[in-house]
Design a protein around this nucleic acid. Structure first.
Lengths: 216, 216
DNA sequence: CGACTCCTTGACAGCGTTCAACAGTAGTGG
DNA sequence: CCACTACTGTTGAACGCTGTCAAGGAGTCG
């Protein structure tokens, strides 16, 4: 069975507590943190805010690998350069951790932590492959909500930091389809919007069990 | 830019040469090697044959993670159990390598090798996410041929061990669509079939540069 | 020979995309 | 304060890519 997002996230948090961080940086919304193929010098842990990591095709098609929220670690690379771009979605604060000296081999403890992090990334990617290749649009949106529910629900409401376009590029859909399926879930009584008429990024999940049934 | 399959494969081969293998097993085509959630005790390296690794949804929808051909290592798990099923596609011989003692921490050298293997898996998964989420059917089939061309071309011809159904479940398509796009590539003069009328698994690539242009 | 598997091909349907219009909110500057 | 613009999100209508359903050919095996 698939491991859900929250299980992965909680293990990430446990790992993060043991790491040695060495600095802090702030980014405004929609600004680049690092780009694909740039040298990878640090690990990043989010203190506040949200980040998307993605790859692009030459014609601009975008596939978002993952969303990262407070507590998450990203930029885990074992090679010399980043394999994807990272951007702050909203105003974001990150802590930096040094990667082990490149070239020289790391000490065993550090490599073990790195192994754990890369493995969690791989698990997430494998689950996302299943979603992208074999789920329909309603199932994709349901899975997305379940993942985010497990990671950033605070006060009973789910406040999405990202817009419809980002969600679409995460799920392999268009923003219109995402919007339609969210409306469908609302009309089914499974969720409700809370914010202003547009910018509907505050969602209240009314029926988690029926939502879960939509994600096979 | 995306790392192509052959780059990953060649690094795998380099790694494999340093590993300590401890046994050999044979499997007939379409037989299980290990199942999802079963205890993970070994690493496997293919000597001869071909293997698919995949996940299933409860209703039977299948997503193939990867195809493995001679030289490849699969079953790289850091947890206690396998996250996916592995099946021999055709008659297959594999070598077994012990995973480090679970629980106790492995020596640094071994962990480093494991890290390399998991990272290569992650790279492949990230590229596959781009393919599944954002490429159309022709681009998917082209990418598949390019990947396989880099891994199992021997005598100028590309002999695919897997059937259309497997290819479809790897690319997030149906077998009919795979068949149609292969026919299209043939009618475009980019490839030719070599085998008997059905069982068209021998493919000759006539124009690799035009094929590459189809994969953005 | 008949049953079976694998693949191809055609016709059609439908899911998701594309194109478009519109609404609500925020920011800017007169 | 209000116009004007920009941005985000929703919704409708039409299209088209891919899936579904079906038929048929070619090869294999008992």
């Amino acid at each position: 069975m698939l491991v859900k997002g929250d299980a992965i996230a909680s293990e990430l948090n446990a790992l993060a507590r043991e790491m040695a961080f060495c600095g802090e940086l702030r980014y405004r919304g929609n600004t680049k943190i690092f780009g694909e193929a740039e040298p990878a010098e640090y690990l990043y842990q989010i203190v506040k805010g949200a980040v998307r990591t993605y790859k692009l095709l030459s014609d601009g098609r975008r596939q978002i690998r993952a969303f990262h929220v407070p507590g998450d670690i990203f930029g885990v690379e074992t090679g010399e350069v980043h394999r994807f771009t990272a951007e702050a979605i909203i105003d974001t604060t990150v802590r930096l951790a040094n990667r082990g000296r490149s070239g020289a081999d790391h000490d065993a403890l550090e490599t073990n932590k790195l192994l754990k992090l890369v493995t969690l990334n791989l698990q997430h990617a494998e689950n996302q492959m299943m979603l992208l290749g074999r789920k329909n649009s309603l199932e994709k949106v349901a899975a997305f909500l379940i993942e985010m529910d497990g990671r950033l629900t605070t006060t009973g409401a789910l406040t999405l930091p990202m817009g419809r376009r980002d969600i679409a590029d995460y799920l392999g859909l268009t923003l219109e389809t995402v919007s339609r399926e969210l409306s469908r879930l609302k009309s089914l009584g499974i969720l409700n919007f809370k914010g202003k008429k547009t910018q509907q990024r505050k969602i209240v999940l009314l029926d988690r069990s029926r939502l879960a049934e939509l994600d096979p």
